[in-house]
């Protein structure tokens, strides 16, 4: 890529981010490389298309293509090491930057194009920048759990009988266990992994572990479990589908960022950063909240009243949740996962 091309894109990106792209002379379409965005498929494909593809194409004249094949860490590593990268943007997260970043498999986020003032400062990292917010929350079956449970009630099998459900992953589950055990939400990190695992280990024969979001919905909906920790997006769908039989709350939850990452040597180069900048516009992020329950990353996004209740990043919901610390995961993530799997499978 030539130096001049880079400068022009850079300018376009800044223009797109400020909503001025229409005022600049439009470059011929072919000059803007296509950007391929890899996400996890399912409902996220139409939702991302509506929220991001149209606005990006209008703002930059480029093309944004969604590949729903799932940008797992292993696939990104294989692609980068084979020098055959086909993705420009990945819908990744804290474990993505934690495992891939230190191995040199990601491009650093270019904050001269991506606007740091349009995110919460805590969620702009070297190798990833927040694209939406989600939370790990407590949900319960009101047939069994007849009063609003506290975080500690999750481990009280006498007060609320029935099996429990947590994600088969250490991330967020360790935090929620510590919160239930009485650790103040602002003093979670560095995580006391042993304490969290003792807490979970004590009732593990009563816990079912979910792998996919769909599984977490099934287990609660079918009455297999009476309480569970799952994503706010799924909890929200469950409440709607069961007409309130399954209820949930952000209280004592953990706020986590979904992150855009850019694989090292991505085909569209800096245009990936331009696309990230374009997707920082509030309107698309509110569309995504409406469609999926993923919270806007841009604090300036003001969702209409009926959506603020389900917005993980709204000030009221932010106040009752802990925030994840990505730096801790970078240093301890894979060890914590191993210890977690050891405890649940022994």
């Amino acid at each position: 890529m030539t130096r001049t091309a880079l400068t022009r894109r850079h300018l376009l990106g800044a223009a797109a981010a400020t909503g001025l792209a229409g005022a600049l002379p439009r470059s011929p379409r072919a000059a803007v490389p296509d950007v391929v965005l890899c996400n996890w498929g399912g409902d996220a494909v139409p939702a991302f298309t509506q929220a991001f593809v149209g606005p990006y194409e209008k703002a930059t004249g480029g093309k944004l293509i969604i590949d729903p094949s799932g940008p797992s860490n292993g696939k990104v590593r294989a692609m980068v090491e084979a020098h055959h990268v086909t993705w420009d943007l990945c819908d990744s997260g804290v474990s993505g930057i934690g495992e891939l970043g230190p191995r040199g498999l990601l491009e650093p986020i270019d904050y001269s194009i991506v606007d740091k003032s349009k995110i919460l400062p805590a969620f702009g990292y070297e190798f990833g920048v927040v694209n939406y917010m989600f939370s790990s929350v407590l949900a319960w079956d009101t047939k069994v759990v007849t009063t609003r449970p506290s975080p500690a009630d999750f481990f009280d099998l006498k007060k609320f009988p029935g099996k429990r459900m947590i994600r088969k992953d250490s991330q967020a589950m360790l935090e929620l266990a510590l919160i239930a055990d009485g650790v103040p939400m602002d003093k979670l990190y560095p995580l006391d992994v042993d304490r969290a695992l003792r807490k979970i280990g004590a009732i593990k024969s009563e816990i079912l572990f979910w792998d996919t979001g769909a599984q977490s919905q099934t287990l609660l909906r079918s009455g297999e479990v009476s309480m569970g920790w799952l994503w706010n997006t799924r909890a929200n769908l469950l409440k709607r589908d069961t007409k309130g039989r399954i209820d949930w709350s952000f209280a004592g939850g953990l706020l986590q960022p979904g992150l855009w990452t850019v694989p090292k040597g991505n085909p569209a180069g800096k245009q990936a950063m331009v696309a990230i900048a374009a997707m920082q516009a509030p309107a698309g992020q509110i569309d995504l909240l409406r469609a999926m329950g993923n919270g806007p990353a841009n604090p300036a996004a003001a969702p209409p009243g009926d959506l603020t209740d389900i917005d993980p990043g709204s000030p009221a919901n932010l106040a009752v949740q802990a925030k994840i610390d990505a730096a801790w995961y970078q240093a301890h993530g894979s060890e914590a996962l191993k210890a977690f799997l050891d405890v649940i499978s022994s």
Partner: peptide
């Protein structure tokens, strides 16, 4: 699968 896909301990 966890070693390859998640924690990258190939």
């Amino acid at each position: 699968s966890i070693q390859i896909v998640e924690v990258l301990r190939w």
